[in-house]
């Protein structure tokens, strides 16, 4: 992606340039142009752009869906409520943990798998491996989560049988423990998403000039030196793309909603990630406090933007 390694910042500056150039632009082939882009733009504006803008408005109001004609603007009151909401902080903490595990698994494993696949010489064999690593990505979310639910079931799931065989029967209780919930959900989500990262990393790896490695090894660089001095620096743009594409992970709700069902938040509520909590506030609890839920979503979105901005800076400074 030509523009997106630099992510939001580059897009924003390109957007600002487009705004300033607008006055100078000629009408050109405007009729043909609008006929080509019009249908897509109209559909996008209605179903995509409008809900985004509308959401920002809702976040600053005390909108309760079940109370008719009631959506007063309330400034930052939703954030004051959030500060005192214990469930919010607990869920937010779980989501941070979830995201950390998700990224650690995704970056490290996807990287190793991609490097190992890039070593395979036969194009057919490499193709088979690429397809295998991409299979979890194509599975429907509900199938993936329900399959893992069976796979991890303490009664007759494989993992339980394996653990019992290795460590004795007591161990399978661990699968029901509240502390295991977030790591399990994060592992499943990482499993499902990893294939696309493998593919992106492979595109990056295949485009690295092999002569670089040759020159390095002639100069006496070992595999570790080659990894840290050539492979990783040259893959930094790919890492940034992966990071940008996964920006929604912090607010993710689907995994928990499928794994435990809509009404059950897991043992001791440990499956209540922040995205799920916002969903519950918006669609299940009391008179459906949409304003509060939207404020939570906005907080999560801004936090994840902040974190990716920070990481982006770190990655870029490491490159020079």
């Amino acid at each position: 992606m030509a523009t997106s390694p630099s992510g939001a910042a580059a897009t924003a500056s390109a957007w600002w340039q487009a705004v300033r150039a607008l006055r100078r632009e000629a009408w050109g082939e405007s009729i043909a142009g609008f006929l080509f882009v019009g249908p897509a733009v109209v559909l996008f504006l209605i179903f995509n752009a409008y809900p985004i803008v509308r959401g920002l408005v809702i976040a600053f109001s005390d909108y309760r869906y079940l109370v008719p004609d009631y959506a007063p603007f309330n400034g930052f009151d939703n954030w004051f409520a959030m500060a005192n909401d214990r469930v919010f902080w607990e869920s937010f903490g779980r989501s941070l943990q979830y995201t950390a595990i998700y990224f650690a698994l995704n970056f490290i494993m996807a990287f190793f798998v991609a490097v190992l696949i890039s070593q395979v010489h036969g194009p057919r064999e490499a193709g088979v491996y690429r397809v295998i690593s991409y299979l979890p990505v194509i599975l429907p979310a509900s199938v993936a989560l329900l399959v893992w639910r069976q796979f991890l079931s303490p009664e007759f799931g494989y993992i339980a049988v394996l653990l019992k065989g290795l460590f004795g029967p007591a161990i399978s209780a661990w699968l029901r423990d509240a502390r295991a919930v977030v790591p399990i959900l994060a592992t499943i989500a990482a499993w499902k998403a990893m294939g696309s990262n493998v593919l992106l990393l492979l595109v990056g790896l295949y485009s690295i000039n092999g002569e670089l490695y040759e020159a390095a090894s002639i100069d006496g660089a070992g595999w570790w030196k080659r990894l840290t001095a050539i492979t990783i620096p040259l893959l930094l743009p790919t890492f940034t793309v992966i990071f940008v594409l996964a920006a929604g992970v912090l607010g993710e709700a689907e995994a928990s909603l499928i794994y435990y069902g809509v009404t059950d938040a897991g043992p001791e509520g440990a499956g209540r990630l922040i995205g799920r909590y916002a969903y519950e506030v918006a669609f299940l609890q009391g008179d459906l406090r949409w304003g509060y839920a939207a404020a939570m979503n906005l907080t999560v979105g801004l936090t994840s933007m902040g974190i990716s901005g920070l990481v982006f800076r770190l990655l870029r400074s490491g490159r020079v």
Partner: peptide
């Protein structure tokens, strides 16, 4: 095609990728 507002429309679409979905399912 060259036409007025082309880049502005395109980059607005791209920029909205980065704006948080506060409304989420509710606005939809």
């Amino acid at each position: 095609l060259r036409f007025k507002g082309r880049d502005l429309i395109f980059y607005t679409m791209i920029m909205l990728i980065f704006v948080p979905r506060a409304g989420g399912l509710m606005a939809q």
